[in-house]
Design a protein around this nucleic acid. Structure first.
Lengths: 107, 107
DNA sequence: CAAATGCGTAAGTCCACGCTAACCTATTCG
DNA sequence: CGAATAGGTTAGCGTGGACTTACGCATTTG
């Protein structure tokens, strides 16, 4: 699970990152948003931490997890590297066709 | 493997998409870039096709795979939806700190 | 101190996934 | 037609990953 891209792609972890993006949260607070058990969330957080995307700060008997800006920046770089110029052009093409000639989707 | 994000995250498939972004290619051409066997590549292509990211066109005994612009656009939308405003701000913050105060990374 | 709270860890299960080997189909070419 | 080429399909294997249950450790609180 080395790269940040794969770590962030998993649906639960994607959601965790979004939740943490709004500010630090404890494991319990995060776990409330999921049907999975707290240990499961804890393990997902460990994966994200291993990828350098989040970090934890001890505070009494709580552990406040928060996003690591540098890690998120690296994830962004990975995504951008994947999103090559060619893919970008394809999207622009698809968008143009969808907005100006929507019926051609089925031609 | 429903969503395009998860389908595209796998390293081999990420590479396949990049290769196909430069233009249609046959399975054999694609397989040359990997150490895995051709059936493995074929299965990865099937996953990408299932996610609506690529499609195949028969041409004699060849099958030319190409990227589906609309699928790529949807992938882009998924990424953008994940990449919330908060994450964007965090990256901007990290970039600013890295370029103006690089030593603070270790403070 | 004892109970309760917040979390991490360990152990074990289950299944999806990535892969290979073997086989089958379709097409081209001698 | 028979051989060769291109590629999809299947079966089966091994591993990793996501999950739960149970437990252990620290910290707060009565």
């Amino acid at each position: 699970m080395v790269d940040a891209f794969s770590a962030a792609a998993e649906p639960t972890r994607r959601r965790l990152l979004q939740l943490l993006a709004t500010g630090p949260k404890t494991v319990g607070e995060l776990a409330e948003h999921f049907t999975a058990t707290r240990p499961a969330i804890s393990q997902h957080l460990a994966v994200l931490a291993g990828a350098g995307l989040v970090t934890a700060r001890k505070d009494g008997r709580h552990r406040h997890y928060s996003v690591v800006p540098a890690g998120i920046a690296q994830l962004r770089a990975e995504i951008d590297r994947f999103w090559s110029t060619e893919l970008e052009l394809l999207v622009a093409d698809a968008t143009r066709r969808a907005t100006t000639h929507p019926e051609e989707h089925y031609s």
